[in-house]
Design a protein around this nucleic acid. Structure first.
Lengths: 235, 235
DNA sequence: TTTTTTATGTGCGTTACCCCGCATAAGGGT
DNA sequence: ACCCTTATGCGGGGTAACGCACATAAAAAA
């Protein structure tokens, strides 16, 4: 059988998956699209199959800050599962690609009647909370260079590809720093041959080298039996 | 009837509350006690009635950082509800006082069989995630002074009292800054007559003044019908 | 082509916070 | 009374990141 492209869905028992999948619609998400906006109602939930979505907290009078990242290891629309109709967080498509979409009502019905789904989603909620807390500490303690490296690696892991479309300006909003700060760090990496970039395109050249440059938070993603299986692509 | 001291429990239908309460044990939590430690199993859940617990992320090689705060408006042991046996977060008693305790097994049974409890807890999970994200952005963008003021106010709100036991050293771990940074900000507040302090005791003198000094995050706590009712004490 | 837009490079003064070390003073224990 | 632990005050030097302004260059639009 063709592999189920989303890790959470892959954990469903076959019977449940088949029923659930009948409510899923494949969609293509374009770069820059905003899936959820703080305060606005959530209509659909998404299971990324090959795309990457940033969860952004918008602080009044400041640039945005990424608090979490969702790829094929997760889902979007957690608030729906928690019985809330909207999210305080903006969800922005940061790596375009494909996802599976389901309407809020159908998802709620499934979530409340399918125990395995229920369990899987709540487990993911835990993992996501951990990720947000980790990111919070990382943003507080680590320097831009280390955070940039971590960010590029996490993106690569989720996109299963080492080059993506991404301006320094955009990155600065993810990391919550100035654009110039990103440029400076990126220039350093390019000089060392770790990455190459030009006008909105970035390519990772030396994965190992980037890992060495990344802060320790990379590698402290959810692990062990307690969380969603550490989702790190094979080398 | 005597008021139920924990907001979450107060939201339970009377019938469910009575059954649930039979499994609750009143306990006194002392200052400095660690309820949960990252990686260690969670044995009990807690519903604070008059105490304050800090949720701390421990970053390797750095001081700790508070990512959330739980008082009578919330509960401790969320991971249990999410089907996880331990938490990546340390829970530390920061304002001593009373709470209601329940064993993990009993709570799980109730959580899985009592729909209103289920709903309430998941709603709180959402609120807590929002708080963590908010704190993340606050720690990134706001200066120590504003964050200290916010922290004191949030503590006051949850402790229902304006003076508490608290050293600058301890505060520095909450805010993720140096002890001297806290001392400096606190000295400024004392000079303006907003607070007074001495050797591990802090008293809020001018609530309004502190609000003016706090960053905008104070007042952006969960609000509206979508979240746990904004829990802010009457003046 | 030429023009316009957009992405990145660069420099410069400013600031909040860091790290380190030590002085002072309040309380608790003996 | 005394010591001794602990909480806070204070200074000096260093730096990561800020804000701003402007130069350059690639791409897109005309």
């Amino acid at each position: 059988m063709a592999a189920i492209p989303n890790i959470l869905l892959r954990l469903l028992p076959r019977k449940d998956y088949l029923r659930f999948a009948s409510g899923l619609t494949p969609v293509t998400l374009e770069f820059g699209k905003v899936l959820y906006e703080p305060g606005k109602p959530i209509r659909d939930v998404y299971f990324p199959s090959a795309c990457l979505i940033s969860l952004l907290k918008i602080a009044a009078g400041h640039r945005a800050l990424e608090v979490g990242m969702v790829g094929p290891e997760g889902m979007l629309g957690i608030p729906i599962a928690l019985g809330i109709g909207s999210s305080p967080i903006r969800a922005l498509v940061q790596g375009e690609g494909t996802a599976l979409r389901m309407g809020k009502a159908r998802f709620l019905k499934e979530f409340n009647s399918c125990a395995p789904l229920h369990r899987i989603v709540l487990t993911y909620v835990h993992a996501l909370m951990g990720q947000i807390a980790q990111t919070a500490a990382c943003n507080r303690f680590h320097v831009v260079e280390g955070r940039l490296a971590r960010w590029l690696l996490m993106t690569r892991d989720r996109m299963a590809s080492g080059d993506f479309r991404m301006t320094h300006e955009f990155l600065s909003h993810m990391l919550g720093v100035r654009r110039e700060g990103v440029s400076e760090a990126a220039a350093g990496f390019q000089e060392k041959g770790l990455i190459e970039y030009s006008r909105g395109k970035i390519r990772i050249l030396n994965h190992r080298g980037l890992e060495a440059a990344a802060c320790s938070c990379y590698g402290e993603s959810p692990k062990g039996p307690e969380a969603i299986p550490a989702w790190r692509p094979a080398r």
